[in-house]
Design a protein around this nucleic acid. Structure first.
Length: 112
DNA sequence: ACCGTGACGAGAT
DNA sequence: CATCTCGCCACGG
């Protein structure tokens, strides 16, 4: 039933899908929101699997520094930066500018 | 069944 | 303030 091991990947996708354009969040924030307290890494893993889910804007998920750590996992290393820039998120040197303001905390903004 | 690796994070040095 | 180490857990070889 609920005991499916990979089911938690869906939880991550669900949250990521709720990220509004022009905003970004961190792996740890999602992990913490889902209760995967130390699962920040697992969230990154889920993102890797999200490769098969077109509805998962993984480009809106960055590390806690606001750094595009996962840009290398996209079709091209610049794809993530382009997608963010297209949504109004300014990126420089693989880092999101004004990150604290762009930060979208699921636990705070989505608290449902 | 064992080991290494990894889109992270926080604490310690 | 920069760097290192550990923890966490899933998955491939």
């Amino acid at each position: 039933m609920n005991s499916e091991k990979g089911n938690y990947f869906e939880w991550v996708y669900q949250v990521v899908r709720e990220i509004p354009a022009g905003r970004v969040t961190s792996y740890g924030a999602i992990a913490h929101y889902l209760g995967l307290k130390s699962g920040a890494r697992m969230v990154g893993y889920a993102m890797n699997a999200a490769h098969s889910s077109p509805d998962v804007p993984a480009h809106r998920v960055v590390n806690r520094q606001g750094l595009l750590t996962g840009k290398h996992h996209f079709a091209n290393s610049t794809r993530m930066e382009e997608l963010l820039l297209d949504e109004g998120v300014r990126v420089e040197n693989d880092q999101v500018l004004d990150f604290p303001t762009r930060f979208w905390d699921p636990e705070k903004e989505l608290e449902s």
